[in-house]
């Protein structure tokens, strides 16, 4: 099941990448990033069957990082929304010059 897991991981990760590229809604882009992180977790779990249980420990770390990222990222989104009344990335172009 290792090969199937890796193929599924690749497909889910790519779906996440494409989602980040085609969406303009900041919240949906965030969810796509979460999907990418979860897809990588599947690789860790699949490999942990052959390389020992350390892979599952890494999954715990990845989950912690993604929880922290969600907390800070959503706080940033709320701050941007309070400032500009939108989360459409088309309208958030302060650095564009």
């Amino acid at each position: 099941m290792l090969a199937e897991s890796l193929a599924l991981t690749a497909a889910l990760f790519i779906i996440g990448v494409v989602g980040v590229l085609i969406h303009r809604n900041a919240i949906i882009i965030f969810m796509c990033v979460e999907l990418m992180l979860t897809a990588v977790n599947l690789t860790f779990v699949a490999f942990s069957r052959f390389y020992g249980t350390a892979g599952q420990v890494f999954v715990v770390f990845v989950m912690t990082v993604s929880a922290a990222e969600a907390a800070v990222g959503l706080a940033i989104i709320i701050a941007i929304f309070r400032h500009r009344q939108t989360i459409n990335l088309k309208d958030i172009n302060l650095l564009k010059g």
């Binding site: 099941m1 979860t38 977790n41 779990v45 599952q56 993604s66």
Partner: peptide, 21 residues
């Protein structure tokens, strides 16, 4: 994905997936 984790002998990670994600 949580179901797949359980099938890949990672029961704890599967539970964490449902609870945390």
């Amino acid at each position: 994905l949580a179901a797949l984790y359980v099938m890949l002998d990672a029961q704890f990670v599967g539970v964490m997936q449902v609870l945390v994600y």
